[in-house]
């Protein structure tokens, strides 16, 4: 009996990962060796104890402190910083629009007919194209500012303040009704 071979496979046996000839050889070793039986019992006990130790709960004040500090940090951001932060995820989109506009205008300048009438028409077309790109970029930026800066930074705090004063939640229900509904949902 090769005890080292058996000892190396105690963890796999306890995890149910042995099969076939290896499993038969290991179980034969179990009948012969008291040390191996002790090894298996110890491995099982360790798993039981570790699994039964409850995960310590993070103290509530520690989490509350973190959220408060983050909230204060956010409030200290200027309107410009908030705008930049809101635009950051869309920065690549704006960059793509800018590059596309430059390529379109530059390409049309290179390829256009140089006759006077065509030059005027081409110029007008270039202006329209550029305005279309600028307009689309502006619309995207406007949506971002409206949703992520104005709604979140201005409208929601005002609604919360109003609901705090009137005793109604943001949907116009009384706090009592909202609490009853919340309890029912739970």
């Amino acid at each position: 009996m090769n005890y080292d071979w058996l000892d190396e496979r105690v963890e796999a046996y306890v995890d149910g990962e042995l099969s076939g000839a290896d499993l038969e050889r290991f179980e034969a070793g179990l009948t012969e060796s008291a040390d191996l039986r002790t090894a298996v019992a110890t491995a099982r006990r360790i798993r039981e104890v570790m699994a039964s130790v409850p995960l310590p709960q993070c103290p509530e004040p520690a989490v509350a402190d973190v959220l408060r500090l983050a909230s204060e940090s956010r409030r200290s951001l200027s309107m410009r910083d908030r705008y930049i932060e809101a635009l950051r995820p869309r920065r690549r989109l704006v960059q793509v629009f800018a590059v596309a506009a430059v390529v379109a205008i530059g390409g049309s300048l290179i390829l256009r007919d140089l006759g006077p009438q065509n030059e005027v028409e081409q110029g007008l077309a270039d202006v329209k194209l550029a305005l279309a790109y600028v307009g689309e970029a502006g619309r995207q930026a406007g949506d971002i500012v409206r949703i992520e800066v104005v709604d979140e930074g201005v409208v929601r705090p005002i609604r919360r303040a109003v609901s705090h004063v009137t005793g109604e939640d943001v949907n116009g229900r009384s706090q009592g009704a909202a609490a009853v509904e919340s309890t029912r949902d739970n």
Binding site: D7, E8, V10, E11, T38, A41, T42, A43, R45, I46
Partner: peptide, 16 residues
């Protein structure tokens, strides 16, 4: 796991 098992085998032995 193997290290822990070897460290604690004597405890199981003494309990037995």
């Amino acid at each position: 796991r193997r290290h822990l098992r070897r460290q604690l085998a004597t405890v199981i032995d003494s309990e037995a």
